[in-house]
C-alpha cells in the first residue's frame, strides 16, 4: 500500500513498504506553534488506525535551515501579548498539554522511529527529536536547549527524555549553559547513533527502516517498551515547572528581547 498526504502547508507524509516518512516543511525552520501542533496531531490521527501494517517511521525536515528551531517564539509572544494574562496562561497550559500528548504518542509508537537531523535542532526541535528511537545526524546538525535564556525550562518533555538518553552531566551542560553542540559531539555523548554527510540522512534512515522490517513485530514492540519507557512522573513534573516559570514576567521580557533583537545570533546564551 502506498499513500501520501499533506497537512496544511506545514508538513507532508508518505507511506510505502511499511515505512511512514513524515517531512516537516514550514519555513523558516519548522517552528512549533498552533499550526504545526495541529498538523502533528492530524498526522498521528491518520496513521493510528493503520499501525499494524507499518514497521517504521522516519521524521525529517525538507528545509536546509534545519530539522526544527523549536517553539514559535514570535507567535508565543504575540499570543501572550494579546491575551489577558490569566487567559494567556490558560491557553499556554492547553498548548503544553496538547504538545505533551503528541510527543508521548510519537515516543510510544509501536514502530521503529528514526529522526534525520540536519542543521538547527534547538529547543522544542530537540524535544521532538528525542521522541525518536534512533537519531541519524547529518554533519550540519546542531543541538541546543536554549530555554534558560528565556527564564524557562524546556516544556515539551525534553529534560526527562534527554536524561533517558545521555548522562546527567551532559544534560546539565546543555541545559545550564544553553550552548549548542555539533553532530560529532552529539554522537560522542551518545545522543546520535549515526553521523552522515550532508544530504545522506534520509538514505541512511531508509536503510535502517528496511533492516527493522526483518524482525518479528511482537518482539520489536516488546523490546521497545522494555528499553524505552516513558518517564511519566518526570514529564508531569517538567510540565508543572515550565508553567510555573512561564507565569512570571521574566518570560515576556525575554521574548520581547528575542523578537526585537537585531543580532544575527539571537539564540546565543
Amino acid at each position: 500500500m502506498t499513500e501520501d498526504a499533506r497537512i496544511g502547508d506545514v508538513l507532508g507524509w508518505t507511506f510505502q513498504d511499511g515505512v511512514y516518512e513524515l517531512t516537516l516543511d514550514q519555513a523558516p525552520c519548522n517552528e512549533i506553534g498552533a499550526r504545526m501542533l495541529e498538523a502533528l496531531e492530524g498526522f498521528l490521527d491518520s496513521i493510528t488506525p493503520n499501525l499494524d501494517s507499518a514497521h517504521a517511521l522516519i521524521i525529517r525536515s525538507a528545509l536546509r535551515s534545519g530539522f526544527c528551531a523549536g517553539a514559535d517564539l514570535r507567535a508565543l509572544y504575540r499570543g501572550l501579548q494579546e491575551a489577558e494574562s490569566a487567559s494567556g496562561r490558560r491557553q499556554l497550559a492547553q498548548f503544553i498539554d496538547r504538545i505533551h500528548a503528541v510527543m508521548d504518542r510519537l515516543d510510544t509508537l509501536p514502530l521503529v522511529t528514526v529522526g534525520v537531523i540536519n542543521g538547527i535542532c534547538f529547543g522544542g526541535g530537540l524535544e521532538l527529536a528525542l521522541t525518536c528511537d534512533i537519531l541519524i545526524a547529518e554533519k550540519s546538525a546542531r543541538f541546543a536547549f536554549p530555554e534558560l535564556r528565556l527564564g524557562i525550562v524546556p516544556g515539551f518533555g525534553g529534560i526527562p527524555r534527554l536524561k533517558r538518553e545521555v548522562g546527567n552531566a551532559v544534560v546539565r551542560d546543555l541545559l545550564l549553559t544553553g550552548r549548542s553542540v555539533n553532530a560529532r559531539k552529539a554522537q560522542a555523548v551518545g545522543l546520535v547513533s549515526q553521523l552522515v554527510p550532508v544530504g545522506e540522512g534520509l538514505t541512511a534512515a531508509r536503510a535502517l527502516a528496511k533492516q527493522a522490517a526483518k524482525f518479528d513485530p511482537t518482539a520489536r514492540v516488546a523490546a521497545k517498551r522494555f528499553i524505552k519507557p516513558l518517564p511519566r512522573a518526570e514529564l508531569h513534573e517538567e510540565k508543572r515547572l515550565f508553567l510555573e516559570l512561564a507565569s512570571r514576567p521574566t518570560l515576556m521580557e525575554a521574548l520581547k528581547r528575542f523578537v526585537e533583537s537585531e543580532d544575527v545570533r539571537p539564540y546565543l546564551p
Binding site: 538547527i120 554533519k139 549553559t177 550552548r179 549548542s180 553542540v181 560529532r184 545570533r265 539564540y267 546565543l268
Partner: peptide
C-alpha cells in the same frame, strides 16, 4: 551563522561554546 560555527568546529577540530 549556526551553520558557519559547525563548519568551523569540524574544519579546525575545536569546540567553542556559544557563550
Amino acid at each position: 551563522a549556526a551553520d558557519l560555527m559547525t563548519e568551523v568546529e569540524l574544519e579546525f577540530d575545536v569546540e567553542i561554546p556559544d557563550y
